[in-house]
């Protein structure tokens, strides 16, 4: 199982064969982090949760400063007061289904919705200062720093190890594009894009196999 140091070393080797430009360690680590960002953004494979405190009567909570800037999107919301998942809704439904002044209704929140990227809305508004929500969200993978590269133990890095070659291809694309080797760079980009699609499919189909029910029939395998 390759750790970041091995991936970086592998890229360095390949670049040595094909390119006269010498890259610094920092260049390679930056390219590695870039690749991680790209693949996490495309596939949303990295998922975290955080507790969001709310103020009494506050319809919206600005997630800036609460969730890290690596945050991508909210996936689900858990009401810690009621021990229930909140159902997603939107502003049109709230206007349509509720009476005028619904923004003021204070009770245990049962619905959540987003306004833009940062503002999490929950209806009804909390009637106290301690109705916290647990927000599950997709995020970018934390970056590795130059000093940490050699100290990431195998198996602990939150990235599927069978897709390390996708990271390699992206790094090669990125570094060669910087060096003006457009043709070679775009070649690696298409190899990366193929793997990105595979990882995306894998993330979306994590439990598809188990979800295929053959009701009343024998399983086909």
């Amino acid at each position: 199982m390759a750790v970041p140091a091995q991936v970086i070393e592998s890229v360095r080797e390949r670049l040595r064969d094909m390119e006269s430009v010498r890259y610094t360690d920092q260049d390679l680590v930056d390219a590695y982090n870039d690749a991680l960002d790209e693949i996490a953004d495309a596939t949303e494979f990295y998922e975290l949760s955080a507790v969001v405190k709310r103020r009494k009567w506050a319809l919206y909570t600005d997630l800036r400063g609460i969730l890290p800037p690596e945050f991508l999107r909210v996936k689900a919301v858990w009401n810690m007061s009621t021990n229930r998942w909140l159902d997603p809704t939107d502003i049109r439904e709230l206007d349509l289904r509720l009476t005028r002044g619904w923004e003021k209704n204070a009770n245990l929140s049962r619905w959540w919705f987003m306004r833009g990227m940062w503002h999490l809305g929950a209806y009804p508004v909390p009637g106290d200062d301690y109705s916290n929500l647990k927000v599950y969200y997709a995020s970018l993978v934390p970056h590795i720093s130059l000093g940490d590269v050699d100290f990431v133990p195998s198996g602990t890095f939150p990235f599927p190890p069978d897709f390390n070659c996708a990271i390699e291809f992206y790094m090669l694309f990125s570094l060669l594009a910087d060096a003006g080797e457009t043709q070679k760079a775009l070649g690696f980009w298409s190899q990366y894009a193929e793997l990105e699609e595979q990882l995306k499919a894998m993330v979306q189909q994590r439990m598809t196999r188990d979800r295929i029910v053959h009701m009343g029939a024998r399983r086909s395998w």
Binding site: V74, D87, P88, D90, M117, W189
Partner: peptide
């Protein structure tokens, strides 16, 4: 051209992300 395409793809991705909670809707209010 490559970076223009990537920008376009990223904008589509972001559009999906902004509206993503709608994918999780299983019931209508009331």
């Amino acid at each position: 051209e490559h970076y223009k395409q990537r920008y376009t793809m990223a904008a589509d991705r972001l559009q999906h992300r902004v509206n993503a909670e709608q994918d999780g809707r299983t019931k209508t209010m009331g």
